[in-house]
Simulated assay, not measured.
Amino acid sequence: MGNVYFFTGFPGFISSMLLEELIAKWAPEKVYTLVLPPMKEKAIAEKERICSSAYFPQAKWEIIEGDITKSNLAFSEKQLHMLAQSVTHVFHLAAIYDLAVPEHIARMVNVEGTKQVNEWVSLLPHLQRYVYFSTAYVSGTRQGMIFEHELDKGQSFKNHYEETKFLAEVAVREVAHNVPTTIIRPGIVVGHSKTGETMKFDGLYFMLNMFERLKFLPVIPYLGKGEAQGNFVPVDYIIEATLYLAHTDEAIGKTYHLTDPNPYKMRDIYRMMMTEYLGKEPKGILPLSLVKWAMSFSFLRKWLRVEKEALEYFECASIYDATNTRNTLAKIGITCLDFRDVIPVMARYYREHRHNSTKQLTIH
């Protein structure tokens, strides 16, 4: 019997891409994906697309309706027994990733949902690995060097997303004493480094949304000094690294920063993005405090298609040490592309799909 994989977070972007790569290169015996009932139709379509392109038998992939916020993930006794008999690898990606998420929703999904998944994986007798998707930004407002083994340093947080992902990782670390666990902490994920493909224009894409709206201006200023490092990583690096870490015994009980090993300052990223997309360079500096004030007005946020919370990442001077990651991945030649080389691909994909409303977040 080969490996049997269970995923939450499908048909989300990273979960879908992980499954596509897993099926192509890791020959799974069986795949189970948990989906919320309202997402089932979309999940079936995505499953059919992946199975068709990878020549993977649809019978070897089962979509199970469930809910991570419910006891036993809302599975029936029959489903619980079936999964307990076979599952070897669990990838927990289901979460609310929106920086502007209300606190009660973030706590219900990110914290309580993860605790329910933790309880369930603790009962799987054949489990070889529990892969939990955290975020580098569990560091909150900490500045300076952040190490992979660190978590609770009494930090505060920039938003409810960061805080609830921190609390969820605390819970995962508690079960890691008894469950073979690997914690993945990505930086801010952008599209595929070769195709540019991404599901949503959020995160760094807010910058492109803004440039698109303001392109009529003769001059666009920098937003603050932008001295903080920007930590942006293409999704294909996240996928390749995660799947290797999920299968090597070296990664059991460890946490990995899948961050940019050679990050640029936000000021330089802003300039490179503007030059690539608009063919012009920023001039002058608009104080970040003034920008934040302006973004307090919902009509402006909605027009620019930018979340106010994203501005915090222009000034939080965190440096993410990824020594553990680099040492482990170097053995098989997995490296993160220089972000300068990713920007043209991002800009091209954005330009081609910028009018696709399904790729834009709803800004409140």
Rank of each mutant, 00 (worst) to 15 (best):
S71C: 07
D67V: 08
L278F: 13
A168Q: 11
G9R: 04
F7H: 00
K70H: 09
I50V: 15
M272L: 15
I343P: 00
Y32P: 00
E46G: 01
L22S: 07
A136L: 00
S16Y: 06
G196C: 06
P57Q: 09
D202Q: 03
G9C: 05
T259C: 09
A228N: 05
V111N: 04
L290T: 11
F157M: 01
Q128K: 15
K254H: 15
L22R: 04
I188L: 04
E41L: 05
F157T: 05
L204C: 02
A310V: 14
Y130D: 09
Y270D: 03
A241H: 01
D268T: 12
L80I: 12
V172P: 07
Q155R: 01
T275R: 13
E46N: 11
T164M: 01
M207H: 06
E352W: 06
I334Y: 12
A43Y: 01
T198S: 07
F166T: 03
G230A: 15
S289R: 14
I252N: 02
F216M: 11
L245N: 10
P263N: 06
F232T: 01
E77V: 11
K78H: 13
T8Q: 07
P180V: 07
K200T: 02
I14K: 04
E163S: 04
L223W: 14
L288D: 09
V87P: 02
E212R: 13
Q155E: 09
E29G: 11
V175W: 11
K308N: 08
K200R: 15
I319S: 12
Q116F: 10
G187M: 08
W61H: 05
E169Q: 10
I183T: 14
I343N: 03
G9I: 02
E276Y: 04
E162C: 03
L22N: 03
Y222T: 03
A171M: 03
P263I: 01
L223N: 07
E227K: 07
W293T: 11
Q360A: 11
L304P: 00
Y97E: 04
G144P: 03
A251F: 02
K47L: 12
T325C: 00
L214M: 15
E65S: 12
A317H: 10
K153C: 11
V233E: 06
K78G: 08
M145K: 13
Y205V: 02
G284Q: 04
A246W: 03
N231G: 05
L361E: 14
S193Q: 13
I184A: 00
W61Y: 06
D341R: 10
K265G: 07
V345A: 00
T164H: 05
R142C: 07
H89W: 06
S53K: 15
A43V: 02
A95R: 05
E197A: 12
